[in-house]
Design a protein around this nucleic acid. Structure first.
Lengths: 214, 214
DNA sequence: TCACTTTAGTGAGCGGTGCTCTCTCAGTGT
DNA sequence: ACACTGAGAGAGCACCGCTCACTAAAGTGA
């Protein structure tokens, strides 16, 4: 099973998610293709496992980065988490694409197995923001009732504190972090941003200001 | 050719990008699979055409939305463009995924045919921001030399005005817009945001503030 | 020791895929 | 009448996920 996953990840790295082939894995393993089904119920199930693993991998590095920081240093924690997530994504772009890219066609990941591990980074990023005493002094737009409701739901399901505006800003910042990484990895920055690491770091600073961390 | 593209888009809508099948298109067309190659050099080439079309489609709706606004109403233009892009994405999520999602594996879109049409929305969004007299009064983080260089390159290649900080904020806002759309379409908001349209609209307001439009 | 069960793997086969090749055949311009 | 062209047919290659019946070895309890 470990071998299968290892080879699957290798194949993922060079070919991408949708091209994941049980036959190719079997070939590499010196095994006939049908024997794969002793270990893996189906290709989709293997994909789901890899997605789960990827969520947990990025969750691990994010939590480790956060844990290495002084608790009170919220800016440092924010930047450490963001930097760690980007570093992970750059190191294994295919696994990042698996979970944050377009869904693999003809296959929908079962929510009950991907939502929970997928929330770890979200909880971390939004949690750091909500733990800080926000220094944001700028204006806030009016919030329509349905938005307010969603924001309150997010605050409760993530178990964080902070007023509605802060949580809304945190959601925006969280989204922007992954927007930056996706744009970098999926080629939207091609030709424009030549030093994506430095650019990401800079925008992390801007987002920290946006959410009132600094 | 028009029929092929039409059916391809239909197939795209129900199955997703990587599952695009020339044989299925041929079947639908009442034609044998090999006859497809009279019209389409390869599956990848068809994919590239669809990507080109998608970029131009979203570029069209964005430019139309912008053109319908009073020139001086920069906030209105910003929101109109963002809303139009999201509406297009929600209407044809598979085409959105094709261009803003993870690249289809084993296939890299030729940059010379995708970069240019892909820049239209970018130019529009960042252009609107740069045309306004920024009302942003908040702080700006220090900008490392490589970031400054990239920002200047972007300003020049897009032909916009505004100081380095404004352009950097514009890039962040542009990225966040697509981050929001991607999170919605790719399921990252699942369970958290129940009214994505209202949420998107709200965050568009926040981004307008961030870049000093309001 | 012997029968039984579990485990791991084989190999054939089904229907699907992209793509290439050679072939046919109806039009068309001269 | 004749050569040429466009559009399609059909066979075939190598690949894919997946199923099924089968086998051989390894462990296990009486």
């Amino acid at each position: 099973m470990a071998d299968i996953k290892r080879i699957a990840r290798e194949q993922l790295a060079v070919q991408g998610g949708a091209a994941l082939s049980l036959r190719a894995i079997a070939r590499e393993l010196g095994i006939v293709s049908s024997a794969m089904y002793r270990y893996v119920p189906s290709r989709d199930e293997l994909l789901t496992m890899l997605i789960e693993d990827a969520y947990n991998a990025v969750g691990d590095v994010a939590e480790a980065a956060d844990a290495a920081c002084e608790r009170a240093d919220v800016v440092g924690r924010w930047k450490a988490i963001g930097t760690a997530v980007r570093a992970w994504a750059v190191a294994v772009p295919s696994e990042y694409a698996l979970i944050y890219g377009s869904p693999v066609p003809g296959y929908a990941a079962p929510p009950d197995r991907t939502i929970t591990p997928g929330t770890r980074v979200t909880r971390l990023l939004i949690g750091v923001i909500s733990e800080a005493d926000s220094a944001y002094a700028g204006p806030n737009p009016v919030m329509a009732p349905p938005v307010r409701e969603d924001v309150r739901g997010i605050r409760e399901s993530l178990g964080v504190r902070g007023d509605d505006d802060l949580v809304a800003r945190a959601v925006l910042a969280w989204t922007a972090v992954f927007g930056l990484i996706s744009f970098e990895l999926f080629g939207q920055f091609a030709g424009g941003v030549h030093d994506p690491a430095a650019h990401f770091d800079h925008q992390l600073d801007r987002l920290a200001l946006l959410v009132g961390l600094a």
